[in-house]
Structure formats: structure tokens, C-alpha cells
């Protein structure tokens, strides 16, 4: 474990707390893409299946349990608890266009052609693009509640912090994970225009609004 990855995981943790806090305080999931949240549950279940057969550490164990449980809880909040505030008509990104290629790529580019390894690879590729329905919705509405932008900033920072973690591990532990690195760069790249608006507007106290 290194500081970058720890900060990344804490940023990921924070993003989930911010999202749950937003849904509970505003009693609504307005502006949140259900599809993106459902993709994250898929990512966590596919990636953390090794909970049943591989022990890494107490930290790893509890974080995996937390991420699966909290992301399922968010789906529950959106689908049942605050259902009336969920508007599927603006959450229309075709997730088949994300899941399909992730499946195909995981069958071609993987480290070992084994079931759990292909699931892990699929989760890595899917996570890289899982935010697209959310960004698509943001683009369509053209604005977002400030707390939602803090959620996205924390979520974007999580994988961005993994990049220095991979550089650090390359030089200190002599390990490299090309699949995770390429996917992580794509994932972080998708946030760049959001971060531009976030840092130039939201952090200057303005509302998050995309240029019309």
C-alpha cells in the first residue's frame, strides 16, 4: 500500500458518502444516473468475487464489502426509497454500448483466460466507461447540484490517484499492471472536461453550468 492508493481509496469512499448524503439530505436522486450506479454494482460484483477465494488483507476485505454493500444500497435508494425523484427519461445512455465492448475486450486482452480473471478484466474495462451515462445526463441537463459535482470530483480523483500509485509501484515494487493502467488513464481522461468546469466554476463559488 502507498499514500497515493490510500488517498485514492479514501476519495472513492468519500464519493460514496457524498452521494448517499446528497440523496438523503435532498431526499431526491435528481441528476444522478441510475445506469451508472448499476454499472458500478456490476463492476464491484465482478471484481470482488475473489472475496470468496483469496485473502489479501483486512483493509482489502472490508473495503470490498463496503463498496458492494454501499453501491447496492444506493440502487435501493434510487429504485425504491426515492423512486418518484428518479427520471429515467433523461438517463437514456445505451449501456449495451459499454457492456458489450467490455465483454469482448476482456475475452481478448486479459492476463489469463480463466473465469475469475476474465471477470476481473471485464470489471476493469467496464469501470473505465461506467461514468459515461452520468456525464451524458450532465451534458443533457447542462447543470448539476453543487453536491453532485463534489461527488463526481471525488469519484474522478479516486482513479486519478491510482496513476501515481502505479508509477510508484513500477519503481519501488517492480510490478506493472498494463490493463489497469490503460483503463485507468481512459477513466481519468473522461473526467478532464468535468474537472475543468469544476475547478474553474464550482470551486470559485459559482454554480456548475455547462456553456450552452
Amino acid at each position: 500500500m502507498n499514500l497515493f492508493r490510500l488517498l485514492g481509496d479514501l476519495s472513492h469512499l468519500a464519493s460514496i458518502f457524498i452521494l448517499i448524503h446528497k440523496i438523503q439530505t435532498t431526499r431526491s436522486c435528481r441528476g444522478i444516473s441510475f445506469q451508472t450506479q448499476a454499472l458500478y454494482v456490476t463492476v464491484f460484483v465482478a471484481r470482488y468475487i475473489d472475496l470468496f477465494f483469496r485473502w489479501i488483507s483486512l483493509y482489502n476485505f472490508f473495503m470490498k464489502i463496503f463498496f458492494i454493500a454501499s453501491s447496492v444500497y444506493i440502487l435501493y435508494l434510487m429504485k425504491y426509497r426515492y423512486r418518484p425523484t428518479h427520471d429515467p427519461s433523461i438517463d437514456t445512455f445505451k449501456v449495451e454500448y459499454l457492456v458489450g465492448p467490455a465483454v469482448v475486450l476482456s475475452l481478448i486482452f486479459n492476463y489469463k483466460f480463466e473465469f475469475t480473471e476474465i471477470l476481473w478484466t471485464f470489471s476493469i474495462y467496464l469501470e473505465a466507461v461506467a461514468i459515461l451515462p452520468q456525464l451524458f445526463m450532465l451534458q443533457r441537463t447542462g447543470e448539476a447540484e453543487t453536491i453532485t459535482t463534489h461527488y463526481l470530483a471525488a469519484l474522478g480523483a479516486y482513479r486519478a490517484l491510482y496513476i501515481p500509485n502505479w508509477i510508484y509501484r513500477y519503481f519501488t515494487e517492480d510490478v506493472v499492471d498494463p490493463i489497469a493502467i490503460v483503463a485507468g488513464l481512459v477513466q481519468t481522461g473522461l473526467y478532464l472536461d468535468f474537472f475543468y468546469v469544476y475547478f474553474t466554476k464550482v470551486l470559485q463559488g459559482q454554480k456548475f453550468e455547462l456553456p450552452a
Binding site: D174, V175, V176, A180
Partner: peptide
């Protein structure tokens, strides 16, 4: 550089 054996990252 050794490719990663066990996925120890989240």
C-alpha cells in the same frame, strides 16, 4: 518488469 500476479488493488 513482473506482470502482476495477484490483484491486490481495489
Amino acid at each position: 518488469k513482473g506482470a502482476v500476479e495477484v490483484h491486490d488493488e481495489l
